[in-house]
Amino acid sequence: MIRIENLSKSFFDENNTVKALKNINLQINKGEIFGIIGLSGAGKSTLIRCLNRLEEPTEGSIYIQGEDITKFDKNRLRDLRKDIGMIFQHFNLFSQKTVYKNIAFPLELEGLPRDQIEKRVDTLLEYVELKDKKYSYPSQLSGGQKQRIAIARALANNPKILLSDEGTSALDPKTTKSILELLRSTRDRFGITIVLITHQMEVIKDICDRVAIMEDGEIIEVNTVEELFKHPKTKTAYEFISRVKSDITEEIIEPNSFKGTVIRLGYSGENAKMPVVSRMIKEFDIEANILSGDINRLLKTSVGHLILELQGKDEEIQKAIKFLIDNNVKVEVM
């Protein structure tokens, strides 16, 4: 669907050159949700803008459905852009136009007759579940609603590709989930290819099939999301996943599927270095099975958690838990 070959982009100032993209090679498949993650300044925003040539590449080729779009003239470029929807971090809706007029905008550019436009806008509004906002103005909408309208507008021309430039970065976690859900269902329903850039690993984890990691204008790793979490190849990848990993392991552990009592120990500072758990095992007649654990170093102290399954007599388990609490370990029965 999209094939990027040896793509480079440099910004020229009066006296220095900034290489924003260095020899990028990437293949994105049809119907895929492809994520590009990186810290700010990594070049991901420049890269996604090259896909519809909001940024002009300095070198290299971008093939979309087999055609090198870097060779397109102005007219073909405009046609291409109508085939690629795009949403943005700050939504970029027209503040002086109603929701209806915003979504109708790309259709009016096409010169469609009024009744067809109205029908299409209604369908789209229904799809993003904001039918009642048809005559509202963007300033009357919440962030999540604005992004839904922006998605409807981006889908108006039935594009084959949807680009999302930090589309959820300005939203709270709950709204982010619902927008990601909408993007996923858009892919599932219309078979559209989605390319998104983000600095949030949660976004990658939640909806992406594959991911590219960018650093200093280069793609340093391309992986399926599953493989990335299991075996990250680069340090940057590891750092990105470690930010969300602890949440994930806890999601995976289902306390009811264990025979024993599952407890979560939280420790910080000095007690992280003490062999509290091994002493507990020696002192009480119980078996402890380690399910997951994690320690993060913060400046001078360590914080972390350990999830254990305790097997044995109830009263022994209760005593063991009390022992842990007495040793300043936070215990939570899951």
Binding site: R78, R81, M86, S95, L109
Partner: peptide, 25 residues
């Protein structure tokens, strides 16, 4: 600037941006 960028991304010509975006907005 983002509004203009999104208009370009939708395939607007320069004159469409002037008359349908810049002036009304």
């Amino acid at each position: 600037k983002g509004v203009i960028e999104s208009s370009l991304a939708m395939g607007c010509t320069v004159s469409q941006i002037i008359f349908k975006v810049l002036i009304p907005e």
